[in-house]
């Protein structure tokens, strides 16, 4: 479904992505992990063109999405994106956050969008918060609304950029539960995440990145038990003993 072909990206003289070659199949759940600054957020942001690339190509269902002629709005309307900082629209209610795009893009009428929005809020367990504004919701609830908002595009593909990193620990579970259900329903997902439990349980594959390269790709069982690359071994050791000196 998604194909990265020798993708290269620079921020000025700094190379953020180096020769990325990867394929993500329909229905696959891929978790991308790696140390901070390794390029994993950048990678996921290139898939809906929030970040331009300078070399290579990215294809979704055979279409080169970074090509000049690609309608970027039409592309994005079919990809759900969930941000680390939620980025809900604070001047709109939870329900309005979900209905804004479908109505503005002319994909459905207000009534239909309303029904869809309510159904999706119900799906993330927040039907009773449809009329609440983001500031009235906890972090975990906001992120669940953000997932519902992304699902309102009825996307075949969902991208998650560290969806639980800005959450208090007790709220991580509720967001992961929603994501787990999505995966179970067969959604194609690319998740940048440090939640190793989630990766082990839900991911079909784990990609390990460092310094802009994908250094390792393996099913989670293999990755966590027998990481091959020394950087991956180091990384796993670091996150398992977060209080170790050095």
């Amino acid at each position: 479904m998604i194909r990265f072909e020798r993708v290269n990206k620079w921020y000025g003289s700094y190379q953020a992505l180096v020769d990325i070659d990867e394929t993500v199949a329909t229905g696959e759940v891929v978790v991308v992990c790696g140390p901070s600054g390794s390029g994993k957020s950048t990678l996921v942001r290139t898939v809906n063109r929030l970040e331009p690339i300078q070399g290579g190509r990215i294809e979704i269902d055979g279409r080169d999405i970074h090509a000049r002629g690609t309608d970027v709005n039409a592309l994005r309307a079919r990809i759900g994106f969930v941000f680390q900082q939620f980025n809900l629209f604070p001047h709109l209610t939870a329900l309005q956050n979900c209905t804004l795009a479908p109505v503005q893009l002319g994909r459905m009428g207000a009534k239909e969008a309303d029904e869809l929005g309510r159904a999706l809020l119900d799906r993330v367990g927040l039907a009773h918060k449809a009329g609440a504004y983001p500031a009235q919701l906890s972090g975990g609830q906001q992120q669940r609304v953000a997932i519902a908002r992304a699902l309102a595009q009825q996307p075949p593909l969902m991208l998650f950029d560290e969806p639980t990193s800005a959450l208090d620990p007790e709220m991580v579970g509720e967001v992961l539960a929603v994501m787990r259900n999505l995966a179970k329903d067969g959604m194609t997902m690319i998740c940048v995440s440090h939640e190793m439990g989630f990766a082990r349980e839900v991911a079909d594959r784990v990609l390990f990145m460092d310094a802009g390269r994908i250094l390792e790709r393996a099913p989670p069982a293999e990755f966590f038990l027998r990481p091959q690359h020394p950087r991956a071994q180091q990384f796993l050791a670091d996150i398992r003993t977060p209080f170790a000196a050095g």
């Binding site: 709005n73 994005r76 994106f81 629209f89 992304a150």
Partner: peptide, 11 residues
């Protein structure tokens, strides 16, 4: 973040 979120929805 707000502009990005809106653009990511296809607006």
């Amino acid at each position: 973040g707000q502009m990005e979120a809106a653009r990511a929805l296809g607006l």
